[in-house]
Design a protein around this nucleic acid. Structure first.
Length: 471
DNA sequence: TCTGGGGTCCTTATACGA
DNA sequence: TCTGTCGTATAAGGACCC
């Protein structure tokens, strides 16, 4: 999908169409998750500190992400991909590989192009959003093609032309070459894909290590036979928080770690998993990051056990100077629990407390309960004025723009944050339902019956038919 | 003024049992 | 019994991706 979060917000909010829209964390330490193409003109891009984005584009609309909303759109699009092939490999909410050959949807250039054109039309009709499609004989090339196709395009890399196309490109084009590897290669005099090929495999391995070296050399020769893998199992579950201001108080640090441990366990249990290795992550005031981990005798999903392990790990960390981020994770996952009996007994007391957040938790965050209630961009409903979204809040007031995906740009009104006529609302569907269709009040309730998981699994390992769509 | 959150994979060092 | 070594876990850090 093109500028996915920002596009979804523009589709949802008519007044933002054609405008610079920036989605991300709005706190003092937030970063840009996605921004609209209008915002990119100002130099804003993903991962940029929000403070910098505000300087570059002070008049843009700034919104917090609504993952539930994006997920429902994503499920719709993934459903369309699932109709093309049983082999769909999601990379994120807005991106997936599809093996068109395995699905019988395409077998040559013409049929692949046709499938891509049809898919883009279906995505637009179903979601009102634009997606780009890259078609090629391997995952790497499909991905590069989809990058070139954006926004709102389709690019097909013809078999036989791969090396010539790749050769003059920057090494940074290849997936897996980020800033560090890019610098490393540049210092060795390698800046283009051709130069990787010329350097030779041995030199690449010497520079970058075995795995990376071999992989990169193969990529440079356009050799990539990785299959499209439909279902990959989760390897770890983690939660982390960056705090608006560094935490110095050691007791407070301990409390935060306990909260994170509970949140992590809730997610773990929600996924029906348990794990053996507990990981504590600490980012200090100077941005130095360290992790401490401990492996238990058996997997656990017991909040008390995870809390205690996290607390033990924290003891070995020096936090003087303050911490800006804390995180707790669990890896070494299993889908069953074989609890250490001794540890379980110790954890039982804490157990009951994790099921529901403790009453004190909501009040525990002293910073701005106002912004918490009306996050920028979230939908609201007013008894008299109907559906709208919170444009901003502060000083006991919230500004609401009243509009819906299929209305004209709406008007703004301001209310007291505790106005009883105002309540949070679910997102509305981006595309109006056709008459005769079952009534579904929320996009969030889109059913997942057509996602790949429910489709028959075919053998994997097909090669040469890989195509990737960037929906 | 800086620099999120949720992941994956790889490398290196170290410990340990056979 | 001493010593090396091989394979496997574990621990920590780093790069990368969206």
């Amino acid at each position: 999908m093109d500028a996915f979060f920002a596009s979804a917000e523009q589709a949802s909010k008519p007044s933002l169409r054609g405008k610079a829209v920036i989605v991300g964390g709005l706190g003092p330490r937030g970063v840009v998750a996605t921004c609209s193409y209008e915002a990119r003109i100002f130099g804003v891009h993903s991962a940029m500190p929000m403070a910098q984005a505000r300087r570059l584009a002070p008049n843009a609309a700034y919104l917090v992400p609504r993952f539930g909303f994006y997920r429902s759109i994503s499920e719709q699009v993934m459903g369309l991909l699932g109709a093309l092939s049983p082999l769909v490999e999601p990379l994120s909410l807005d991106e997936a590989f599809v093996d068109l050959e395995a699905g019988g949807a395409a077998w040559d250039e013409a049929s692949a192009r046709l499938a891509g054109v049809q898919l883009r039309a279906d995505i637009r009709a179903g979601t009102g959003l634009t997606g780009s499609v890259g078609l090629a004989a391997s995952k790497m090339l499909a991905k590069i093609a989809s990058e070139q196709a954006k926004p709102d395009g389709l690019v097909l890399i013809e078999p036989g032309t791969e090396r010539a196309l790749l050769g003059p490109m920057s090494v940074r084009t290849l997936p897996g070459v980020g800033p560090a590897t890019g610098d490393h290669l540049r210092r060795a005099g390698i800046t283009t894909v051709d130069e990787i090929a010329e350097a030779g495999e041995d030199e690449l391995v010497r520079l970058l290590g075995k795995a990376h070296g071999h992989a990169l050399y193969a990529m440079a020769l356009a050799r990539d036979d990785r299959p499209v893998v439909a279902e990959r199992e989760t390897k770890s579950v983690s939660v982390e928080d960056t705090y608006d201001v560094d935490i110095h108080d050691r007791v407070r640090v301990g409390l935060e770690v306990q909260r994170l441990a509970d949140r992590c366990v809730r997610r773990l249990r929600g996924a029906g998993l348990s794990g053996r290795t507990i990981v504590l992550k600490v980012r200090r005031y100077d941005f130095s990051t360290l992790t401490r981990s401990e492996t238990l005798r058996g997997p656990t999903d017991d909040p008390g056990v995870v809390r205690e392990a996290a607390a033990r790990l924290l003891e070995s960390v020096d936090t003087t100077g303050g911490v800006r981020l804390l995180g707790v994770g669990v890896s070494g996952l299993a889908d069953y629990t074989q609890e250490d009996l001794f540890a379980q007994a110790a954890g039982e007391q804490a157990e009951s407390e994790v099921e529901e957040p403790s009453p004190g938790e909501a009040a525990e965050v002293p910073s701005a309960p106002v912004e918490r209630r009306w996050p920028a961009g979230h939908d609201v409903r007013h008894a008299e004025y109907g559906h709208g979204w919170a444009q901003g809040s502060g000083l006991g007031r919230v500004t609401v723009r009243f509009e819906t995906p299929d209305s004209e740009p709406g008007r703004v009104r301001t209310f007291r944050v505790d106005d009883p006529d105002l309540e949070p609302a679910e997102p509305l569907p981006l595309v109006p339902r056709r008459p005769g269709e079952p009534d579904e009040p929320e996009v969030a309730s889109v059913q997942a019956s057509s996602v790949p998981a429910s489709l028959p699994k075919s053998r994997s390992g097909s090669e040469g038919g890989g195509a990737m769509s960037r929906p």
